[in-house]
Design a protein around this nucleic acid. Structure first.
Length: 597
DNA sequence: CGAATTTGACCCGCGC
DNA sequence: GCGCGGGTCAAATTCG
């Protein structure tokens, strides 16, 4: 009765509104000119759509028990609603037009500014690169202090650089073939082809080695004269329950060595995304806290990075940028300085002999004479959240500790107690997780999938617990970080790099030809969706527990093989450890280390 | 069986 | 010059 007629009225109104938008504005006048409501339906029939007729007809032939004045009232109210909706529609159209015009205007401005910036700031791409900044500094010193955060329009130009992530374009020579990326490495050089055929034994080995050395030297000589500049390195410290950080790149292990001072073997990987990519990384567990994984990146990718790899690459690039900028400010000598940067400890030093601040007890090799920046992400509970940091610009609001060693130390550190609970933060921009790698990365999965050896160990030993959750970040720390970001151009640079990375990846995942404005807005929203859609790294990875390697795997293998392992939580307790005094915050067997070289 | 990993040997830079 | 230690190579081994 009333319900039926009410529905008819509402439904009819809605449909009529829809049809009316097509039929034009005549109906509006016609409608207002209507007299008796019973007649309205009949009068409007010529202009109504079929559906409208049926609905109106339904209303018209409603049971006679419905009072006619009630129908009139409902029709009138429906008509009023239609009018409102129509006005709203007009307003929205106006908004849309205005936004479109503004967008076009901005696009024009963007093109102009881009053109101008391209000319003026060509060399600023360096700021996202790893390497000896000094080389560029010679050319254009003032650039050092320029923040790049305000140049999203550089994205198209930077995209390649970002995709190269750990670029060190100006590193001209290195032992590891880290000369110019596009150059063929010694293996493919003609000299190699003149090498004696294989098959001989030791002599051939030595000859080939000599030839390689010769090649290296010749390659070096081709670029630099006597003393090749050391590579900049980015050392990432993160609590990681996996074997290596899942940085999205494909790595192949080519060596493992026990470094002095750390019983955990150091694993050497090289990038296999491209066959000649000279980028290397070293992975080693921290001697004092084996839940901390120390990953050192070095070299230049000579290929576009997988989507999932750009986050880490750009982050490390940003860190390198910070290092380089920081070094520029403290390059003058061995002096060190500390400053309170809006509540954050900002520490600059130039003690080339000093131990790495965040790498206590680790020996400093000659390789560490090269500039190294350490990204201390140990406040992040596990690698599962690392990518969120790496990919979420908002997470820069919770600054990790940036420290560079050797020549400089940048310590954007909130207090140690201000650990970050990433689970409590809104990582609404995060996307870099395992499943998107699978879904979006067109390449195959990295051969070395970082399987959670923790889960592996938990399978073996259910008593072992996960690392303790950290406290949530205090609000004042966030405020301090915000201040730091706004005050410090270096931080802005890092933030810009991360943002650009996100935009770039969004653009890569989406429409590559999308304009920058779209990349910054629309694709970010895409990212938000991806972040919501996909879970995090290691837990979703297919099991590759058989591929365990590195410290944990060695440890596992050897402990399981050599020790008459007791079931339970003692199975990972070797009898004596060189660092047995290590404080243990959990029952993690990593604290027991791997004393088996 | 091909690819990836392991591992011992080798090379080289640096300090003494 | 020698030894140490980091880094790399490549044959052997393992894995899928």
């Amino acid at each position: 009765m009333e319900v039926v007629s009410g529905r008819s009225g509402d439904g009819g109104g809605a449909v009529k509104e829809e049809g009316r938008s097509e039929s034009g504005a005549d109906d509006h006048d016609h409608e207002h000119g209507g007299g008796k409501e019973e007649n309205i339906a009949i009068m409007k029939l010529p202009t109504l759509t079929t559906m409208e007729r049926s609905i109106v007809g339904t209303a018209t032939i409603a049971p006679s028990s419905i009072p006619s004045n009630q129908v009139d009232h409902e029709l009138e109210s429906a008509r009023a609603e239609m009018g409102e909706v129509r006005e709203e529609n007009q307003r929205l159209k106006m908004y849309l037009d205005r936004i479109t015009k503004e967008y076009q205007t901005l696009q024009v401005r963007f093109q102009n500014m881009k053109h101008q910036r391209d000319i003026v700031e060509e060399s600023e791409l360096v700021s996202l690169s790893l390497g000896r900044y000094q080389n560029y500094q010679k050319k254009d010193e003032p650039i050092i202090t320029k923040p790049i955060i305000t140049r999203p329009w550089k994205y198209e130009e930077n995209k390649q650089d970002l995709s190269l992530g750990l670029d060190c374009k100006f590193e001209s020579s290195s032992k590891s073939g880290g000369s110019t990326s596009n150059e063929p490495l010694p293996n493919s050089s003609p000299i190699n082809s003149s090498e004696e055929p294989k098959g001989e034994s030791g002599e051939t080995r030595s000859q080939s080695d000599k030839a390689l050395k010769t090649l290296r030297n010749s390659a070096d000589d081709g670029h630099e004269n006597s003393t090749p500049p050391k590579k900049a390195r980015v050392c990432v410290r993160a609590r990681c329950d996996t074997l290596t950080l899942n940085d999205g790149c494909q790595w192949r292990k080519y060596g493992q060595k026990v470094a002095k001072g750390n019983p955990c073997p150091r694993a050497y990987y090289r990038c296999t995304v491209a066959p000649l990519c000279p980028v290397r990384k070293q992975v080693q567990r921290c001697v004092h806290d084996m839940s901390i994984l120390i990953t050192t990146y070095e070299g230049t990718h000579n290929h576009p990075l997988p989507i999932s790899a750009t986050a880490m690459a750009s982050t490390t690039s940003a860190a390198a940028s910070m290092l380089l900028s920081g070094s520029s400010s403290s390059q003058s000598g061995p002096a060190s300085a500390t400053a309170d940067l809006h509540g954050l400890n900002y520490y600059l030093s130039d003690s080339s002999k000093s131990k790495q601040f965040y790498l206590p007890n680790s020996s400093l090799s000659s390789s560490l004479s090269c500039p190294t920046i350490t990204l201390d992400l140990t406040s992040i509970p596990s690698s599962q959240y690392l990518n969120r940091f790496l990919t979420s610009s908002s997470d820069y609001m919770n600054p990790p500790r940036f420290s560079s060693s050797n020549s400089n130390t940048l310590n954007f550190s909130s207090s140690e107690s201000n650990t970050i609970s990433w689970t409590n933060n809104t990582n609404f921009l995060s996307y870099g997780t395992t499943q998107p790698y699978k879904a979006i990365n067109l390449g195959r999965q990295p051969p070395l999938m970082e399987n959670s050896y923790q889960s592996y160990m938990q399978k073996s030993n259910p008593i072992i617990s996960t690392p303790p959750q950290h406290n949530s970040l205090p609000a004042d720390t966030i405020a301090a970080a915000t201040k730091a970001i706004t005050a410090d151009p270096n931080f802005q640079s890092a933030l810009a790099a991360a943002l650009t990375s996100i935009i770039g990846q969004a653009g890569t995942q989406g429409n590559q030809t999308t304009g920058v404005a779209n990349a910054g807005g629309e694709n970010l929203s895409q990212k938000m969706k991806w972040g919501d859609l996909f879970p995090t790294i290691s837990s979703a990875l297919p099991s590759s527990s058989s591929k365990v390697n590195g410290c944990a795997s060695s440890f596992l293998k050897k402990t399981q093989a050599t020790n008459a392992v007791q079931p339970g939580n003692l199975m990972f307790l070797p009898p004596s450890l060189p660092f047995s005094t290590t404080k243990s915050t959990s029952a993690s067997p990593r604290d027991n280390g791997d004393n088996t070289n």
